[in-house]
């Protein structure tokens, strides 16, 4: 199915963990929103993407 991940089109049919692995993101340092809603890490295993979902993959950067 087609997702929008951080603003870019991305074919993906698996779990959140698999998506992070594809992106090379460390799950420990990553937060996820789907269509604007936070998906808690405890719910990642049971989460199913739907076609057209807009996914944001976020992490900490330096900031004041």
């Amino acid at each position: 199915m087609n997702l929008t991940v951080n603003g870019e089109s991305h074919e993906h049919a698996g779990t959140i963990a698999a998506l992070l692995s594809e992106l090379g993101a460390n799950p420990e340092y990553t937060a996820i929103t789907v269509n604007g809603d936070l998906v808690f890490s405890k719910d990642w295993n049971n989460f199913k993407f739907s076609d057209g979902d807009s996914v944001e993959v976020l992490t900490f950067v330096g900031g004041g």
Binding site: N6, G7, L23, G24, A25, N26, E28, Y29, T30, A31, E56, V57, L58, T59, F60, V61, G62, G63, G64
Partner: peptide, 30 residues
């Protein structure tokens, strides 16, 4: 303090999170 941004696959920011996590006496304030 730290800021939240989109993960950049060309420039993974693990290098910020992991070293900060090692500082045991330092708490994070996003």
């Amino acid at each position: 303090t730290v800021a939240l941004r989109r993960f950049n696959r060309d420039k993974p920011d693990d290098d910020l999170c992991a070293p900060l996590a090692k500082l045991k006496n330092v708490k994070l304030m996003p």
